[in-house]
Each structure stands twice: as structure tokens, then as C-alpha cells.
Computed example of a mutant assay.
Amino acid sequence: MTTRLSQVVAVEKPAKTEAYGVLTAAHHQVQKAPLLAGISRTYRPRDDDGEQLPPENSRVQLRAEDAITDVVTALTRFYDVTATKDWANTTAKADVVLDGAALLRDVPVPFLLFLEKQLTALATFIEKLPVLDPAEDWQYDNDRGVWRTPAFETVKTRKVPRNHVKAEATDRHPAQVEMYYEDIPVGTWSTVKYSGALPPARVKELQARLQALRDAVKYARESANATEIGQRRVSAALLDYLFHTPANNTAA
């Protein structure tokens, strides 16, 4: 009987949850001594006229062998489903195709899943890449290996004190003079800005290529998961050996 890898993957987690639930419950139950114990007592007085007491009985509520059977039943499905998936992962493969050509061939499912996680991390990295200030005119400087702006000049000034006569001196009053500072050009700055950031178009290109690659990996994974696979039955050999019941169940 065959099935698709995607179907096996879908049922693996529920099978695991159920198996661990049954195993945990059985583990706790077999440690409760009262559930495993039973008793049957009858009373007989020494004399015929003695007090008559009713018998006392309590049944065994849990057999350890029954707990083992429940665990084996749950683990059988979980082990077989997991084995089917893991064996399939060694054979279910697909090509990562971009622009009609195979970028990677015969990629197994585990590596496709790995790639999806890695590309998600790279998406965050690319999104945070620094971009050049669009307000500037950038040109690539081959000698320096960075981007640069054309040189632009700014005037260097120096403040020089000046006197402003608000009122001339008279025979009675001195002149009223107010001091102020005047910016006098003393030189010229020639400035070139440099940057190691990226042009916005470059970042957009990287984002587009990353998205195309993520889509291609996703399609490859879906294609590989659609592979028809044979179901594996491994639990019987393992669990039968582990929980083998002797012909004489009372044997040591």
C-alpha cells in the first residue's frame, strides 16, 4: 500500500501526541500500587455461635500487561508513521527550478525544509540592508570601492567684530557705539561624501531574487511531498522483542 509523503507528515504529529499521552498515562498508572492489588477474605468463627462476618473482596483494577498492550498499540502507529516518513525522506526528492532551469537537482525533503528556514533568516537580513540617501547624486568610485557624490563647495567664514555708531558724539554726550560681528569669507571647503551603502534598486533586486528562490524551494518541497511512498512496518520487530511474553507468563 502506498501513500503520499505529505499525508504521512500530516498524521505524524497527532500520532506522536497520542503515543506520548498513552505512554505517560500508563507510566503513572503502573506506579499506583492500589490499582494493581486485589484481595479476597472470608471469615470463619472458632465457635459455631461466634459472630459471622461477611467476606471482603477488592478486585485488581489494573494489569501491568494491559498497560503494556496499550503502550504497544499507541507506539506501533507512531513508530510506523515516523519510519515511513524518514525512509521516504531518503527517496522523495525534487528539483529547485528557477526561470525554467534546475538550480539544484534531486534535493531531499529535509534539505528543502532547511533551505526554507535559512531563506526566511536571509529575508530579514536583506530587509535591513542600508541604502544610499536618495537626496544625493551618487557615483561609484572604482578606486575606493565605495559610492561618492560630486564635490561641492561651501564657504568658510570668520566672525569679525565691527562697530556701529548709533549716535555721533556731541559736546555733552559721547558717541553711542554698538559692537556686532560680521561673517567674513576666509576660505572654501570642497566636500565629497562617501558611502558603503547600497543603491535602493540593488536591495529591491535582492528582495525579488530571494522571493523567487523561496517560491522555488516551496514548490520543490510540495512536489517532493507528493511522492508516492510505501508504508513501513518496523514497530512489530522492535516492540515484540522488547515486550516479548514468555509462553509461561509466570516464568521469571
Rank of each mutant, 00 (worst) to 15 (best):
Q118R: 15
Y180E: 08
W189L: 11
L115R: 04
L5S: 06
F243C: 02
D80V: 04
L35W: 05
A25W: 02
L5R: 11
D99P: 00
Q7F: 07
A64K: 14
L129E: 07
T124A: 14
E65R: 12
T84K: 04
T17I: 14
F111E: 07
D47G: 10
E127P: 01
S40T: 11
A220Y: 04
D49K: 11
A37V: 10
F111V: 08
F152P: 00
A74C: 05
A88Q: 01
V8H: 01
L53D: 01
A10M: 13
P54C: 00
S58V: 11
V165W: 05
L132K: 04
D48L: 15
G21W: 08
A135S: 15
D215E: 12
A197P: 03
E205A: 05
V165N: 07
H28Y: 11
W147H: 08
T170Y: 02
A94I: 07
F152E: 13
T227L: 04
T42I: 11
K156F: 06
D86L: 14
T73Q: 08
T154K: 09
W147V: 03
L213P: 05
I39E: 13
V8R: 04
Y140E: 10
S40K: 13
V107I: 13
H27T: 14
T227K: 10
R232W: 09
D48T: 11
A121Q: 13
Q118D: 14
L75N: 01
L239W: 06
D143E: 15
L103A: 13
G100T: 07
P174R: 09
L129N: 08
A25V: 01
E127Q: 13
V192W: 04
A251R: 04
D70S: 10
V177P: 06
R221C: 06
K128S: 12
V81M: 05
K16P: 00
A92P: 00
R4W: 02
L23S: 06
Q207C: 07
T24V: 02
L132G: 03
D99I: 01
P185S: 03
T188E: 09
D47R: 14
N163F: 00
A237I: 10
T2M: 11
K16C: 06
K16S: 10
H28R: 14
A83S: 13
A167C: 01
L132D: 03
A220T: 06
L53E: 05
T149N: 05
G187I: 05
T24L: 12
W189C: 00
V217D: 01
P199E: 12
P14G: 03
P134I: 10
V146S: 09
E168D: 13
